[in-house]
Computed example of a mutant assay.
Amino acid sequence: MIRSTAVFAVCLLLAGCGDGPLGAAEGAASAPADAPAGVAPGPDYAGDFDLAGTEPFWAGRVRETVLTLDRMEGGAVSLPNPGVRIDGEQGVWDAEQPGEAGAEGHRLVFRLTPQPCSDGMSDRVFSHAAEVWLDGATLKGCAARTEDLAKQGRP
């Protein structure tokens, strides 16, 4: 009885090494199973973006090495681009530069959300809504890839 059980177990183990999908021999009749579908790629925030807002007027730029915010009141702030972080469908750039002796530091955050947006002052079509935080103040506006705005004939 023990001998027949052992022979049966050995046969089962050897059957697992045959022409099945996991141990298929060359020329086997069955192909390995397809791998599970991968995770869908996330949103694409590569490249340059231009941001704009009104009341108060402001403009922002995402470039490979720098984030810039120009304000009519308060001047311009430029910080090194730390790279984008994906938060759901949103792209977030969060740059911080501590102040040096006697100088004030800044924290600049750009958050873009893919959705149609109008700045209310022009006929430009933007692909993203934009929120900008600078040192605790929030600005709202629109954003689009620089190349898409150029196709519309806009700088």
Rank of each mutant, 00 (worst) to 15 (best):
P32T: 06
G53C: 05
G60S: 02
T65H: 11
V77R: 04
A33P: 12
Q90L: 02
A35L: 15
D70K: 12
P80G: 07
L51N: 00
A52G: 08
E73M: 14
S78K: 07
P114M: 02
R107M: 01
V66S: 09
E89C: 00
T54P: 00
E64T: 09
H106Q: 04
V77G: 03
M121K: 15
Y45H: 08
E104N: 03
S122W: 13
A103M: 14
P43K: 07
R107S: 07
Q97F: 03
E104W: 01
D119V: 07
T113V: 06
D119A: 11
V84H: 11
Q90R: 15
D48W: 04
G99L: 03
A59W: 01
V77N: 05
E89Q: 13
Y45I: 05
P80W: 03
G120L: 13
N81H: 14
G88W: 04
N81G: 12
V84A: 10
D70I: 06
H106G: 04
G38N: 09
T65G: 15
D119Q: 11
A37F: 10
D34C: 09
G120M: 12
G53H: 04
T113F: 02
S122N: 13
M121Q: 15
R63Y: 02
Q90E: 13
V84I: 12
D50S: 06
D94M: 05
T113C: 01
P116G: 08
S118G: 14
D48Q: 13
L69G: 10
A103N: 05
F110H: 00
G53E: 03
T65L: 14
N81R: 11
T68N: 06
V84D: 09
G83N: 07
R61M: 03
V77I: 15
F57C: 03
G47T: 14
D44F: 10
E96L: 04
V109A: 02
A33I: 12
Y45V: 04
V92P: 09
